[in-house]
């Protein structure tokens, strides 16, 4: 469905951030995009959604295709029309609008009021916590409620592909579990494909079908989610666990760095 081929992204004409990223998202799949800070995960999402242009970034080489059609030269509003919606990191609710207004903003491309009402009910059924908060100013919601709201807002656009950037950021573990459960349900019930960027590798791989690991602007590792879950390198890099599940000594950290360099 979505295919990136050797995508290179440059910010402000000088800073090379992505150095040839290739990845694919299949119809109805959840694909996890993992990696440390600064690896280029968010940039990859913004390259797909077209939001790069607002940050002086550009795709300088390679191509991004949706069902065989190139989208890397299109404006963000055209890309949304094609069915790709990005949910940005950091729970970006429209603070001074109410919860319901936020959701209606998501539905603005839909011309059928009855459909919009049905979609509102659908979002409230995924996130019952939002039902009682409809007329609340969204800036005053709690972090978890705001995360639900931005996912709900994207859902209102009835996307074919959702680009989700760090939904677990700054949320309590129980809430993270709940949000991931809902993401999985959306994927199954609405047949929405999802490209998920996460620091919380284990939570992401638990619901994903396939995973990519990025480092320094490149994809360094990829494979089916269950393979990655058992991968020793992933365990080491993301969980800090060695074979024995013990904490590592400094000697082993050096080993980790060496290995990581080798992988890159």
């Amino acid at each position: 469905m979505l295919a990136l081929k050797n995508v290179e992204v440059v910010y402000s004409d000088v800073i090379l951030v992505l150095r040839g990223v290739s990845l694919q998202v299949g119809q109805g799949n959840i694909v996890a995009l993992l990696g440390s800070n600064g690896a280029g995960k968010t940039t990859t999402l913004k390259a797909i959604s077209g939001l790069l242009s607002t940050e002086l970034g550009r795709v300088t080489a390679g191509s991004i295709q949706l069902d065989g059609v190139r989208i890397d030269r299109k404006a963000p509003e055209e890309i949304v029309k094609l069915g790709i919606v990005q949910i940005m990191e950091g729970r970006r609710v429209l603070e001074h609008l109410t919860v319901e207004e936020n959701l209606l903003v998501g539905a603005h491309l839909c011309r059928n009021p009855a459909q919009v009402r049905r979609d509102l009910e659908m979002v409230y059924s995924y996130f019952p916590a939002l039902t009682g908060l409809r007329h609340r100013t969204s800036g005053y919601l709690s972090g978890g409620e705001q995360q639900m709201l931005v996912i709900g807002r994207a859902l209102m656009a009835r996307p074919r592909l959702m680009l989700l950037d760090e939904p677990s950021l700054g949320l309590a573990p129980l809430l993270v579990q709940e949000i991931f459960r809902i993401i999985k349900r959306i994927n199954v019930d609405e047949k929405t494909s999802i490209l998920l960027v996460e620091q919380n590798a284990m939570a992401a791989l638990a619901i994903a079908d396939y995973g990519y690991v990025m480092d320094n602007g490149r994809v360094v590792l990829d494979g089916p989610a269950e393979k990655l879950r058992d991968n020793e390198d992933i365990k080491e890099f993301y969980l800090g666990l060695s074979d024995l599940g013990q904490r590592k000594s400094y000697r082993e950290v050096k080993h980790y760095k060496r290995r990581k360099r080798w992988l890159a």
């Binding site: 429209l94 207004e101 656009a157």
Partner: peptide
């Protein structure tokens, strides 16, 4: 509503397909 949304956060508005 869309104008109020864009007034609040240009990037979010763009991410939701508002020109």
């Amino acid at each position: 509503l869309l104008m109020r949304a864009a007034a609040e956060d240009h990037q979010v508005a763009q991410s939701m397909g508002i020109s």
